[in-house]
Amino acid sequence: MIDSSADLAALCSRLAKSPYVAVDTEFMRENSYWPELCLIQIADEHEAAAIDPMAPGIDLKPLLDLMVDNEEVLKVFHAGGQDIEIVHNLTGKTPHPLFDTQVAAMAIGQGDQIGYSNLVDTWLGITLDKGARFTDWARRPLDKRQIDYAIGDVTHLVKIFPRILDKLKKLGRGAWLDEEMDRLADPANYENQPDDAWLRLKLPSRKADALGRLKVLAAWREREAQAKNLPRGRIVKDETLVDLAGSPPAAQADLGRVRGLSQAWSGNDIGGRLMKALAAAVPLPADEMPGREERRPGVGKDGALVADLLKLLLKIRAKEIAVAPRLLARTDELEQLACGQREGLSILDGWRGEQFGRDALALVEGRMAFAVRNGKLRMTRTEEERA
């Protein structure tokens, strides 16, 4: 257990000489906007440690430098999205280079999103003790069982990683992971832009004025939540925000009659800031208006049937090459391809294009078809295509 700046600096100095380290975090976010970092576990082939970021006066800079600035050490995570988000919140950068064993497991046919316990069982034959899984990591002191459980997340991972990497190399799929890891490391994935917060909400209507109000209200709530470090719903619930956008109050005094707000909002500061945000709202510009699904070319019964055929092709191809379907293609991209879209689809580029996209496009354009041979479903070139 590392709880001093000197010990942490010494640990990071040793780890900086390793080709890779396994990393995991424990955090709490039920009562905050930003995840509260409670523990950081890290290991290489020789040692493992749990770092206490809540220890008084501890300086995490050596660890963060190792994460984001040291290009010589590969950082290995499992389902690391939230761990990467925490590093990004602290530094504005993401760990690099990085490797995610959950994504890698998809590339070698071990399910869509294999959990860590199943990963450890599959590769090491070890059944993990889940008793400490839902512990309160913010409470101190942590007992030995908690620390052992937490460190196990990286000591097992550091053994599993080289085995997965070896299988990827044997299958010739290392380049697939390079592309996926670049996507995972993109800092844009972890930036909470207040002006984009409205896109996560159920739209009250397709009227430009209502959507304009929703955009400014969602941005206002995001900034309030960030400043107070509270969950968005603790500021204003989604349904209340949508109601306000659809039926805005004429004056602050009317806020006390809005479902989901207390009477105090009719005269307090936060109510005043809400009304100021509403007053600044303008109708949503035409170029920001969300598109209508039904207006996309090819949408309808026929388009849905084509999308279903693409999903069938995806299942066949994923089974043939032993890869998780979700890694090959997303449902929305299949639907877009069925509707006639060709630009900006990841399934038509890179390794996805080679393994699936080209045949998917050929199917949509009538150059491939399904056939049953010896009782098994197969893809075949059409007579016209062969000619």
Rank of each mutant, 00 (worst) to 15 (best):
204 P>M: 06
38 C>W: 00
150 A>K: 01
373 R>M: 13
386 R>V: 12
189 N>M: 13
140 R>L: 08
236 V>R: 04
294 E>T: 07
226 Q>D: 10
20 Y>G: 07
272 G>Y: 09
181 M>L: 07
115 G>Q: 06
206 R>Q: 07
306 V>G: 03
4 S>H: 10
200 R>F: 14
166 D>Y: 03
60 L>Q: 04
227 A>P: 10
149 Y>I: 03
178 D>Y: 02
164 I>W: 02
340 G>F: 03
242 V>F: 03
165 L>N: 12
299 V>C: 12
171 L>V: 07
187 P>Y: 03
76 V>C: 00
355 Q>A: 14
267 G>V: 13
288 E>R: 15
154 V>K: 00
367 R>W: 09
33 Y>R: 00
321 I>A: 09
379 M>G: 09
250 A>S: 14
212 G>N: 02
219 A>N: 05
23 V>L: 11
187 P>I: 02
294 E>H: 14
373 R>E: 15
100 D>E: 09
222 E>Q: 10
296 R>F: 11
173 R>V: 05
294 E>L: 06
320 E>A: 15
25 T>N: 09
308 D>T: 06
294 E>C: 06
102 Q>N: 08
20 Y>D: 12
304 A>F: 15
174 G>Q: 14
76 V>A: 01
249 P>M: 02
255 L>P: 13
19 P>S: 06
65 D>G: 13
1 M>F: 12
353 G>P: 04
273 R>A: 07
45 E>A: 14
106 M>I: 04
65 D>S: 15
149 Y>L: 04
62 P>G: 08
77 F>D: 10
51 I>W: 01
307 A>C: 05
382 T>H: 05
360 A>G: 04
